Computed example of a mutant assay.
Amino acid sequence: MQLEIFQVDAFSSVPFGGNPAAVIPLQQWLPDDVLQRIAEENNLSETAYFVRNGEAFDLRWFTPAVEVDLCGHATLAAAWVLFEQLGEQAEVLRFNTRSGELRVSRNADGLLAMDFPVKQPVAVEIAPGLLEALGLSEARALYRTDDYVLVIDDASLIEGLKPDFVALSSFDVRGIAVTAAGRGFDFVTRWFGPRVGVNEDPVTGSAHTSLAPYWAERLGKNSLRCEQGGARKGQLQCDVPGNGRVIISGRGALYLRGVIFI
């Protein structure tokens, strides 16, 4: 069997930036174990698969270790492939996913806008051992959705974080986002997910469904410029219109197009 594969750097306008995702269009679903093994072989933080379903697409995401409920950068990559490589003419792409229907539109200059549901973060006590695992001595607050969202006051500490990934994998959350205001953006973030097989994700679109509503409320603005990453970074635009949705926008760049033989 031969399958077409694309590798797209999401949330970047040029290769080698943002967050790489594999995108594999399918005519019909393969067995789950095959989808998982392909994602493991790709060894990227996410591999996205889609199958056309009427006027929409069924979309699934796999890390090298597990299938996940929501992935922003691989959704953007899948939409970019449909628009820019496969000639999709629809003004808005509709994806059926484990997180409900997701919509992606494209504006005149190629910016892709993803319409995701808000995940409102809830304040919790700072978990014992969390700061030590991140190499931090203090934090402003901790919030929880699918992830822990740890807010710190000094954005300069974000760049130098060197987490203990074994220790982080013991926390019962999808991942840990460390975020702060400033450094030329409304807020900056790094995201660590060793529990789902991704030690660090350069740009995590889905994490911004929690990050954006937090920062929108704290900063008193509903349009936010964001950056995520350590050595490798990407940029996002997040809009929080107050209707229970987050509009997460970014660009994509093609790195690879090829064929898988299985």
Rank of each mutant, 00 (worst) to 15 (best):
A207H: 02
W215I: 01
V66I: 12
G72L: 09
D58K: 12
E84F: 08
V203H: 06
A133I: 08
A10D: 11
A22C: 09
V66S: 01
G184R: 02
A253C: 10
H208W: 07
A48G: 12
T97N: 03
L82C: 05
A123H: 09
L142G: 04
R190V: 02
D172V: 04
E84Q: 14
V23I: 13
R37F: 09
L161Q: 07
Y49R: 05
E200I: 02
P117G: 05
P128W: 06
A108D: 14
I158R: 08
L111K: 04
V151S: 07
I248D: 07
F116S: 00
D9G: 00
V8D: 12
S249Y: 13
I158P: 09
G18Q: 04
A79V: 05
R245F: 06
Q89P: 15
Q89H: 14
R257F: 11
A141L: 01
D58H: 13
M1Y: 10
G72A: 10
Y148T: 00
R174Q: 01
F187S: 00
N53S: 14
S99Y: 10
P25T: 01
A253E: 10
D33H: 14
D154M: 07
R98E: 03
R37L: 13
F171K: 00
E55A: 02
D164W: 11
D58A: 15
E200M: 05
F50R: 01
A207T: 01
R232V: 12
V8S: 07
L131E: 06
P128V: 02
W61R: 00
R195N: 03
A155W: 14
S99Q: 12
S169C: 05
L219F: 12
L44R: 02
F6L: 04
C238I: 02
R251Y: 15
